Simulated assay, not measured.
Amino acid sequence: MKKTTSFYLMHLGLCMTFLFLPYAFTSSGGIFSFPNLSSNGHDRIYFLIYFLLLLFFYFNYYYLIPKFYFAQKQLFYGFILIIFLMFFLGISSFFDGADHNFLDSGKQIPPVEQGSPEVADGFNPNQNFNFRKERPPKMDSFDESHAPPTQYNHTILVYLIGVISSLFLAIKNRLEKVEKDKMKSEISFLKAQINPHFLFNTLNSIYALAIKKSDKTADAVVQLSELMRYIITNANDDVIALEKEINYINNFIELQKTRLGNTVTIDYSMQGATFGKAITPLILISFIENAFKHGVNPNENSKIGIRITIVGDYLTLFVSNYKVDNLESDSGIGLQNTIERLSLLYPKNHVLTIDDNPDNYTINLTLKVG
């Protein structure tokens, strides 16, 4: 899946926020102090450590977790995390030491020359004297008791937060991917059941015409070819233009009119604009086909009503049929599969009402297509 511009901008904003997090609160009481990276070695230390931790976050998320944690190598993964933690603590200690802080570009104390006014009588400049004692102690340096520096605590805390958050996001995304793959597998299985079901019923319709030696048999074959072309070309797409689905329904209804002739009254209407709308293929046809399967008997008063209305971003399908005696034995797998697909693909974007009474069968489906 291609990453969008908003995705990269979001990550850039999060990275900038993370890098400037140590400067959110200042000792002077201000809310934010912009880091002085040109002359303040302390600011540069924080910036360097946080920058390296940020790089490790993405390295851990995109490489270490998939390579080791998800590959059932958790023990080795934990060992790697410990190695990296020691690495970051070593860097913190190295750059925080006064003798190694080459990041600090502050003024160095010049050497004392012999004969200078600063040299008093009886004072040996070579004696062991620390000229840096007057320099204000840094908060993040080792004190005389050799206690761990504050920078250690910051590094450990941020490192652990980065590891835990990257693990949480990686596991969450993996679960979502597994759920999405499972849903796609279920939908593919349902489609595999629906497509032969359509073909079987449509061939039965053409067979009935051939038995009657109807002149409309050739037209029915052409209409069937249009139906099959649609199934082969578009049925495996996630979404298609609504216009194509409506055209498929039109061909199906015309095929039924050709087969049934005057034995059934078909009241079909479609209102609204299809331009710019999209829908999952074959999500409507099962309700219409169900009406023809169970609402047609040449020896009874058969009537089918089909109404499609598009208002704004919503499509409403209304289908009704009289209940008649039907010799076909069918488990209703097409209709049941469509109901399952609706729950998977439109969990919060559809409303389906089914009214099943002794005289007629009615469905009313409202679906978001915009």
Rank of each mutant, 00 (worst) to 15 (best):
I308G: 01
V324C: 01
N321F: 01
I211H: 15
Y77Q: 12
P66T: 14
L54D: 04
F68Y: 15
T280P: 05
P111G: 08
N262I: 12
Q336I: 04
S105L: 11
N297L: 09
N349I: 00
I206Q: 03
K107C: 06
L54E: 11
S166G: 13
D359P: 01
T362Q: 10
L52W: 15
G122Y: 13
I249V: 09
P148V: 11
L344W: 11
A147C: 10
L344F: 08
D143N: 10
T155L: 12
Q256I: 00
N201Q: 13
N364M: 11
L160N: 14
D325V: 06
N357P: 11
L344M: 08
P22I: 02
G295T: 00
N236H: 08
K3D: 14
D237F: 13
H294F: 09
N299S: 13
V158W: 05
K216T: 13
Y159K: 05
A218Y: 12
V264A: 02
Q127G: 02
L209P: 02
G276M: 01
V324I: 02
Y77L: 10
I194R: 00
D99K: 10
V158Q: 13
L75C: 12
R44T: 05
V319I: 03
A98P: 04
G261M: 11
I279M: 04
K303M: 09
Y361K: 02
G41I: 07
K212C: 06
M139F: 06
R135I: 15
N297R: 10
H100C: 10
F88S: 04
E118D: 14
I194L: 01
L48A: 10
N234W: 04
A147T: 05
I156A: 11
F142A: 14
A24L: 10
S92E: 14
M270Q: 14
V178R: 11
F168E: 08
G97A: 15
P149T: 15
T316K: 01
L255W: 00
L21F: 15
I279A: 01
S225F: 03
Y268T: 00
M10I: 12
G162V: 11
L85W: 05
M228T: 05
M10V: 08
G261V: 09
K368I: 08
K184G: 04
A24G: 07
V112N: 03
L327R: 03
P137A: 15
N128Q: 06
